[in-house]
Structure formats: structure tokens, C-alpha cells
């Protein structure tokens, strides 16, 4: 899966969580600024794990700040 496909997929997942339009969610959006509380962010991590069939540790989950960070992590994990 290439970078733009992963990025698009992530935007859709976040849009589902936040009820925003996926097109409004930008790759440099910082999740810490997004208004999602810590609980919602963990739920989002779970959806990402299930969607991309990967396992993220607590430290990895905490270290991702933007959608771009998540894309990089997914690529590392999946070898994409």
C-alpha cells in the first residue's frame, strides 16, 4: 500500500471518529491538537491496528503525533 493510499485511509478512519469530512483532515494535523481525548486516541490506534493488521506498542502509540507520523510507522511495520 503506497503512502497516499495509507494517508487517505487514515483520514477516513479519523473522519469516522470525529464526524469530520475526510478531505478536511490534513496529513500534518497534530492529533494532540485535534480535540480527541486520550481514550478516543487509543480507540483510533486500535482501528489502525485492525485495519493495517499491525500491533503498536504503548510507546509507539504515544510517539505518533501527526498523520504523516502514522503513515511512516505503518510503512515500517508492513514493509510497504
Amino acid at each position: 500500500m503506497d503512502e497516499s493510499t495509507i494517508s487517505q485511509k487514515l483520514s477516513e478512519l479519523i473522519a469516522t471518529k470525529t464526524k469530520l469530512n475526510a478531505d478536511d483532515i490534513r496529513p500534518d494535523l497534530n492529533l494532540e491538537d485535534s480535540g480527541l481525548d486520550s481514550f478516543a486516541r487509543i480507540e483510533l490506534i486500535l482501528v489502525i491496528e485492525e485495519t493495517f493488521d499491525i500491533e503498536l506498542s504503548d510507546a509507539e502509540s504515544a510517539n505518533v503525533a501527526t498523520i504523516n507520523d502514522i503513515v511512516t510507522l505503518i510503512q515500517e511495520k508492513t514493509g510497504a
Binding site: I25, D33, G35
Partner: peptide, 14 residues
């Protein structure tokens, strides 16, 4: 105040 409104505000400011 909601995540949706905050994100929309972030985008407008950006």
C-alpha cells in the same frame, strides 16, 4: 465545543 469544531477552526487558521 467539540473535536469537529476544533478541527475546522484549525483548518481555517491554517
Amino acid at each position: 465545543i467539540s473535536p469537529q469544531r476544533i478541527m475546522q477552526a484549525l483548518n481555517r487558521i491554517s
